[in-house]
Simulated assay, not measured.
Amino acid sequence: MSDAVAHLIFDVESIADGELISAVRYPDEKLTPDEAIAKYQAERLEQTGSTFIPHTFMVPISVVIAKVTADFRLLDIKSLDEPHFRPHVMTKHFWHGWEVYNMPQWVTFNGRSFDIPLMELAAFRFGLSVPKWFDDSGYKSRRNRFSTGSHLDLQELLTNFSAARFNGGLNLAAQSLGKPGKMGLSGDQVQAYYDRGDLKAISDYCRCDVLDTYFVFLRCMVMTGRLSLADETKLIQQAREWIECQAQTCQACSDYMDHWSEWKNPWQPDEDEALAAATVLPTEHETDAPPAPPQASEEKPAKKDEAAT
């Protein structure tokens, strides 16, 4: 059983660059950054019904990444550059860490249209080179929209690359599996939390989204035949024990467990005995005990230039 990282499940929260908005959209009005953001948000609300600003005017303010093995075990979760949350440092650690771990598969929910483009533009903005991501190999390119080996967007999997809509998003997908989904904060509130200096709350929100994405990822692996329902049940139990352990020192994990519930197995024994039993962990008298849950890794202090992932 290898602990090599095969998947990096991540989520990004972002804030608007008021100076850029002022310079690009309102060059003759001499607006302050805050005034420019407020004006653009008002325009977006009128046009779209949401204050959310396009990613081209945004910078990352929280990046949380879960490390997952080839057999889908959760190893660890990291919030990059916490507690400083410096956009340029997070961006460097994000891309450099991907290379350090030998370019594992990115896993997101709606990351193809937001999270990955945001981090690409952040590399552009901060002068970072990512040649292994921006390789020029035609249809085999890691940036090929349909290259799921490099980046699996779970929303695209569930919608056949946007042939259908997934109304409800990650919140719906997670809650359909008995997981917490959105708890209080939402994406369109991130700017307000940043403006009042509550960066830790943004990071905690991002961490919970990554946990939701992990459990949606597991069920997608069941759906696509890469994981059995029985093995998914064992992995969920291991992850739950890991989260409970982290909850002693991590507020986000504590909140997550407060909202935890179980997926209700609909299969009855007279319908399919194997599926009915799949969500019931065997006792130690019936089979070997399941593997111990992953423990939080003890990492050496990183050098200044090392990746935090």
Rank of each mutant, 00 (worst) to 15 (best):
M1G: 14
A6H: 03
L8H: 00
L8F: 01
D11L: 04
A16G: 10
L20N: 13
V24L: 12
T32D: 05
E35P: 09
K39E: 05
E43G: 04
G49Y: 07
S50F: 10
T51F: 05
F52T: 07
I53S: 04
P54C: 02
T56P: 07
T56G: 12
V59R: 11
P60E: 07
V63N: 00
F72V: 09
R73W: 00
R73K: 13
L75V: 00
D76M: 13
I77W: 03
D81P: 11
P83I: 05
R86E: 06
T91M: 02
W95F: 02
H96F: 14
W98L: 05
Y101G: 05
Y101E: 14
M103I: 10
P104L: 01
P104E: 03
W106E: 06
V107Y: 03
T108Y: 04
N110P: 05
S113N: 11
S113H: 10
S113D: 07
I116A: 10
E120T: 06
E120V: 07
E120F: 07
A122E: 02
A123Q: 12
A123C: 11
F124R: 13
F124G: 08
R125G: 09
S129L: 14
V130L: 01
W133D: 03
F134C: 13
G138Q: 11
Y139M: 14
Y139H: 15
S141E: 06
R142M: 06
N144A: 13
G149F: 14
H151F: 04
Q155E: 11
L158N: 15
N160K: 09
N160E: 15
N160Y: 11
S162K: 13
F166K: 14
N167C: 08
N171S: 07
L172A: 09
A174F: 06
S176H: 12
G178N: 12
G181I: 01
G181V: 03
K182E: 07
K182L: 03
M183V: 10
G184T: 01
S186Q: 09
S186Y: 06
G187L: 00
D188V: 05
Y194A: 13
D195M: 12
D195A: 12
L199Q: 07
D204F: 02
C206H: 00
C206R: 00
R207D: 00
V210C: 02
Y214T: 02
Y214M: 01
F215K: 04
F215S: 04
L218E: 00
R219Y: 09
M221Y: 00
V222D: 03
V222N: 04
T224S: 15
S228R: 05
K234I: 03
L235N: 00
L235Q: 02
L235R: 01
Q237M: 08
R240V: 06
R240Y: 04
E241W: 07
E241S: 10
W242V: 00
W242G: 04
A247M: 12
A247S: 14
C250N: 15
A252P: 08
C253E: 08
S254N: 15
Y256P: 00
M257D: 04
D258Q: 08
K264M: 14
K264C: 08
Q268P: 00
P269E: 06
D270S: 11
D272M: 01
A276V: 01
A278R: 00
L281H: 02
P282W: 02
H285G: 05
P290M: 15
P291W: 10
A292F: 08
E298F: 12
K303T: 15
K304I: 10
K304R: 10
D305R: 15
A307D: 08
A308M: 14
T309S: 09
